[in-house]
Every structure is written in structure tokens, then in C-alpha cells.
Design a protein around this nucleic acid. Structure first.
Lengths: 252, 252
DNA sequence: CGAACAGTTGAGACATGTCAATTAAAGTGG
DNA sequence: CCACTTTAATTGACATGTCTCAACTGTTCG
């Protein structure tokens, strides 16, 4: 695992997408078991029975779509590797970025209630997803068992995350929003075992701005400003956080 | 509907689920049945079995708290009557309004994943809630049955709603946000059988501003501006929409 | 090499936040 | 029931932050 990261970062200078193993050994490992799903989700509850189910993985190249708005619900996905962007298109045809899912996040939970996915999810980097098909999720023999319970739990977590990231955009000054965004990204990378102080943003300034409800120029200016204050170092999409404390103080 | 209420109250006396001693409170106790829950939620799926469960109602006066942040998860609530406000308090102690639940909405779904409610829900008007206790929701004999499936569905709908209202706050101009907010409120009132063209906002300008991420003065100015344009009429919290078309055009 | 895209930076217009004054309504206590 | 306080809401003046438009650079990709 660490080897992979190092290998990736060695080539990261001119290849900003992270960890994209075009490895052939993966060809044989296209399935994940229940325990890997639990581990990815950071499920902390009790599992009562041994569940021998295997879940097929799905590979995506950067730019490919994981789910499309309107597509019929086929199941949930757990992100195993990579970074994605979830967006909604409103009635006026304007796109709005609502999340940046990464490892351990759940995709497609908005599709349950109407049998159709209601958001668009595209891969920002090469991705590896684990598919939890709806027939497994809703089949009578599985109902009430661990899988269903875990899905419940994960969906509830989704709601909480939606709400908390919503609070991100609730601050008058755009610079504060960007600072908080970086803090959240840092924490999420840390939760994945990556460095919280140095990471590569998988999304464009435009995406960040759309997400934070500011223009891309404002995002750029905010990053430059934070850089001038010596709080971070920015070089295109590579972010170094020089002082977590200063970043934290900034966003309060 | 009256019949249902009476039937429910009558059957509450002998319903075996709750071994409560007969109290004088009993005449005040109100119960709702499964079909009323489905109807409130606008559940459009199939119900396989007859579910005779009864759910206790809970009355709230304006200002009272329905759920508190940190309180241990005790179940979900479906709003039967009234208007509420859902808010999160971030690490800095700043409150952020994330939703204005009303009739048919689900409360408490963010509490499943950690066993604690993660948001604060207070009643803006007198309210009537239907409690779906966690023991019923998660009991082995209920698992996999309709109640669990409906809960799934409702939670998924919550996620979608969270996301779509997120797009509300995404528009550069505050006047457009306020106009869209009014449109959404109008649609929600209409979905409840109330007039879409005349209604009373249950929340303060401050709450609206917090929700839309603008100051209360800006909300007030936006309403005045829409009023000057002849699109709406405002008198304190009473809103009359004079031209739905103009309001719609405004927010695009 | 040229085209398209991502990102930075500047200048000016405009929208919003901030501070302050005022009015109306609602709750409080004698 | 009446002063009294508190809260909600409106409006104005001013400062400031953000958007818009624009120019420019560096990178990627065909």
C-alpha cells in the first residue's frame, strides 16, 4: 500500500492524478468481500453473521461517469480508490457540485427513493468502485441482515455529511470558505492514511468554486492570499499546509 | 381521516405493543397507523403486507425542541402538522439552518449512523409528530418488512432533498435566492393542500438569511424589491405571490 | 506547433455586509 | 389593562467583498 503511494507520488510531479495502478495483477482481483466493504466504510458496529457475499468491482478512468442522472437505480457503490465529483443539474440547466466523494464514500444513495439516480457522478481520477447491486440489497433472503443494516447506517452517515459540508458554505467570506474546504480535504486525506499536510486536489478551481458558491477567480485569489500569509503553499493542484493551527484559526 | 384517528385511539387501549398502565393521560394520547405514515410520506411504492402497528404521536408547542444534538437516537419522526427548523451548530458555536421540515417530512434520520442525533430540530409553530421508535424500526421481527423498506425510501428521499435545496443557495444574487426560496415554499405548501399563492412563512428573516447564507437585512431588501416589482405582496410573514410566472422567470 | 484548458492576476462595477435609526408587534409584570 | 421590555422587520448610508471582464502564463494534448 505504501509502496503504491510512493510510486504514485514519484511520478506525481507531471502526472497530477493520484494512484492509478494500471496493473495487470488487478485483473484477477475484481471482487471484494463483505469485510472489505465494512472496512472501507469504517463501519464501527457489530456484525452478527459471516457474510460470504462477493461484490464486483468497477473500474473508471478519469472523466468517465459512475452514475448518471435519470439512470435507473442499479445499486450502491463504495469508493475503493480514486476521487469523484457529484453534481446536480437544476431546471435551468446549471450544474451544481454537491460533493467530492473519495475512498470509503457511498455513491448512489439518492437513487433508492425513486428508482433512478438523481445526481451525476464522474470520476476525477481513475477510480475503483465496489458495486452493491440492488438485487442483493433488496432480495428477501438478505433483508434484515447485515448488508441491509450497514447500508442503512452508511446512508444515514451520508445525510450527516451532506449537512456538515453544507455548513462549509455558510460563512460570509470566501477566503474562510476556502480555508475550511482545505481543512476538510486535509482531514479526509488523513482519514485515508495519506498526509494531511501535503496533498493534490483532484478537482479544478472551477469545481471548488461551484461547490463553495464562489467564482473560480475568487478561489484562486483566496489560495494566493493564504499562501501570502504563509499558511499554505500552493503550486497548481498541489497543496502544502504549512500551519494547521493558522488554517484553523483562519476559519473561525 | 377522522375515522382513522378515532379507530386508532380506540384500538390503543388494547394494543399489545406497549404494556403501559392505564392512566388518565390515555384520553390525550393520540396514535397514528401505518397507512397514515405512508400517506404523509407520499410513499408511492408497493406495500406487501398489512401492518397493524400503531405509532404514538408527540405534540410540540412553538419553540419546543423536537430533537437535540447529541441526544441518543430514539427513532425517526414524521411531521404530521406544523413547521420546524433543523440546524447544526459547528465547532465555533455558530448555528446553521439546514432545513425547514413541515408536514410529511422525516426528522432524525441523521441519528442512525452514530446512535445520536446530529442536528437540532425546534418547532416554529405548534407541531404534531409521529414517532417511529428505533426498537420497532430495528427489531428482528420487523426487519425486512414494509416499515424498514419505507424508512429506507424516506431516508433516500431526504438525501435528495438535501441536495436539491443545496442548489437553492447556489446562485450569485441574493434576490434570486430569496425568489427561489419563495417558489420552493409555495410548492411545498401546495403539496400540503394549502394555497400556493398565499401563505405565512413560519420562520424569521434571520432564519431565512441563515438558511440562504445572506444577512437578514438582505432578505428583507430582497422581499421589498420583489414587492416593488409587483411580483409578490409582503406583510410581515404573510406572503402573496401575485405572479408565479414572474417569480419563476426571476429565479433563472 | 497550435489549440484548448487550467490557473493567476488586475481594474472597475456592483452587490452585499455592517452599522444605525425607526417602527410595529408581541410578550412581561405590576 | 397599561407601561415596559424585547423581538421582528424595514430602511438608509457607507465600507467592503465579490463578480465580471480582460490579459497573460503554463500545461496538456492532438
Amino acid at each position: 500500500m505504501m509502496m503504491n503511494v510512493q510510486t504514485a507520488s514519484a511520478s506525481a510531479r507531471w502526472h497530477p492524478s493520484f494512484g492509478q495502478p494500471a496493473l495487470k495483477l488487478e485483473r484477477d482481483e475484481r471482487w471484494s468481500d463483505f469485510s472489505e466493504v465494512l472496512s472501507l466504510l469504517n463501519f464501527d458496529g457489530q456484525v452478527q453473521e459471516v457474510n460470504a457475499s462477493l461484490f464486483r468491482r468497477r473500474r473508471l478512468k478519469a472523466g468517465q461517469s459512475a452514475l448518471s442522472m435519470g439512470q435507473s437505480f442499479q445499486g450502491l457503490y463504495v469508493v475503493r480508490l480514486g476521487a469523484l465529483k457529484t453534481s446536480l443539474t437544476d431546471v435551468d440547466g446549471v450544474e451544481h457540485v454537491v460533493a467530492f466523494p473519495m475512498k470509503g464514500d457511498l455513491l448512489g444513495s439518492d437513487g433508492i427513493c425513486r428508482g433512478r439516480y438523481l445526481s451525476e457522478v464522474v470520476a476525477l481520477t481513475d477510480c475503483d468502485l465496489i458495486r452493491i447491486p440492488s438485487e442483493t440489497l433488496f432480495s428477501p433472503e438478505h433483508s434484515g441482515l447485515d448488508l441491509e443494516r450497514v447500508a442503512y447506517w452508511a446512508i444515514s452517515r451520508e445525510i450527516f455529511q451532506e449537512q456538515t459540508v453544507g455548513t462549509l458554505t455558510y460563512s460570509p467570506k470566501s477566503e474562510v470558505r476556502v480555508a475550511r474546504f482545505l481543512r476538510v480535504q486535509s482531514e479526509r486525506f488523513a482519514a485515508q492514511g495519506c498526509s494531511p499536510n501535503q496533498f493534490i486536489l483532484p478537482m479544478t478551481r472551477r469545481d471548488i468554486g461551484n461547490y463553495l458558491n464562489v467564482t473560480l477567480e475568487t478561489v484562486s485569489r483566496a489560495l494566493s492570499s493564504l499562501s501570502r500569509h504563509g499558511i499554505i503553499a500552493v503550486e497548481r493542484r498541489e497543496i502544502k499546509i504549512l500551519s494547521q493551527a493558522a488554517l484553523r484559526d483562519f476559519g473561525s
